[in-house]
């Protein structure tokens, strides 16, 4: 009888997923956890070393900001985890779990950024990453402003930074720069030659505050616009509005409340995403649940996630 060499693997490393089977025998993609897409340069060097030693000729940048090591032999799992340094570089997830949050660069160096999306992404990653939902995947994204480069409303819970501006008429020099800067045309010059804001048209981007030469426009409120129930893939849904000006430090708590509702309401419905659960239960069911915990931030009314017809015209 031939000697059978037993491969030993620490199965704890696989708990949160992130090791994804490839086409070839024994080969896996190892998806690394890069919350908010930010990675220090020394860490990037370390990952390059590990990729060179254990992986193929390239890495892949996933659509959700992870670095994926390609062509990793499953027998090297423990060595890869060890060399990456378990504390500083964690592996990402797959399956029915809370995924690594994505985020834009935020407000530190991006002139459009209104809120610290990087901080929010790290907090969510630390507190909620890998939480099993019991039903399906659960994605979170943070955009620093309403221009929403991360496409937050295609996530289960999507956040976009917003500010409510307020005008001090006495300081205003009637230069008209804010009116010219206002893309949604929420600002027009009034009869007194001072800008007038139409709240219904405002997307809360803060461009008026940024351009104002005299600080006549300033920030009254700052926080996240929250849209829930989005997803892409086979049957795309765009998430709808559930909360406005949610303080940045309440993001984790808010997501936890949505998760709690999802876990309970999707019970027995099989592999169903949050958006489809909302359509089934009605948006008010979730809105009321959230209002009980976040009365100051939830909107008065909302609608179900919006179905996007991507198959029309297909024979």
């Amino acid at each position: 009888m031939a000697d059978v060499k037993q491969t030993k693997i620490d199965l704890n490393n696989l708990k949160a997923g992130g090791f994804i089977k490839e086409r070839g025998k024994d080969l896996f993609t190892v998806r690394l956890r890069v919350p908010g897409g930010r990675m220090s340069v020394p860490r990037l060097k370390k990952i390059a070393e590990v990729a060179e030693k254990f992986g193929g000729e390239f890495v892949h940048l996933s659509v959700r900001q992870s670095i994926e090591l390609i062509n990793i032999n499953f027998k090297d799992f423990d060595a890869v985890v060890e060399e990456l340094g378990e504390k500083s570089q964690k592996v990402a997830s797959c399956g029915a779990r809370v995924r690594v949050p994505v985020a834009c660069g935020g407000c530190e160096y991006n002139p459009n950024g209104l809120v610290d999306t990087q901080k929010s992404a790290l907090e969510v990653d630390e507190k909620l990453f890998g939480t099993p939902t019991g039903h399906h995947k659960f994605k979170v994204a943070f955009a620093g402003c309403p221009f929403d480069c991360p496409k937050s409303s295609t996530n289960d819970v999507g956040f976009s930074g917003a500010i409510e501006p307020v005008l001090d008429k006495a300081t205003c020099i009637s230069c008209g720069l804010c009116v010219k800067s206002c893309v949604p045309k929420a600002l027009v010059m009034g009869e007194d030659n001072k800008p007038v804001l139409t709240a219904e048209k405002c997307i809360w981007c803060g461009d008026c505050v940024k351009v104002c030469p005299t600080e006549a426009w300033s920030v009254k409120k700052k926080g996240y616009t929250v849209r829930i129930g989005g997803k892409w893939g086979r049957n795309p849904l765009v998430g709808t509005l559930f909360a406005t000006f949610l303080p940045e430090d309440k993001a984790v708590e808010f997501i936890a409340a949505v998760l709690e509702w999802y876990k309970q309401k999707a019970e027995g419905l099989g592999r169903i995403r949050l958006g489809d659960t909302i359509i089934k239960e009605g948006p008010d069911a979730l809105l009321n649940h959230l209002r009980s915990q976040f009365p100051d931030y939830t909107v008065a009314k909302t609608i179900a996630p919006q179905i996007i017809q991507t198959q029309v015209g297909m024979n």
Binding site: P111, I173, C175, G176, L177, K180, S181, V183, D207, K210, V211, P213
Partner: peptide, 27 residues
């Protein structure tokens, strides 16, 4: 240009004084 440049110059520390539209349509 009229949307982006003034705001960037303000961020560079300059003092914006005013904006006028000309008959020809530029600012």
């Amino acid at each position: 240009p009229v949307k982006n440049v003034p705001r960037s110059l303000k961020a560079d520390g300059h003092k914006l004084l005013g904006l006028t539209q000309t008959e020809e349509g530029y600012y």
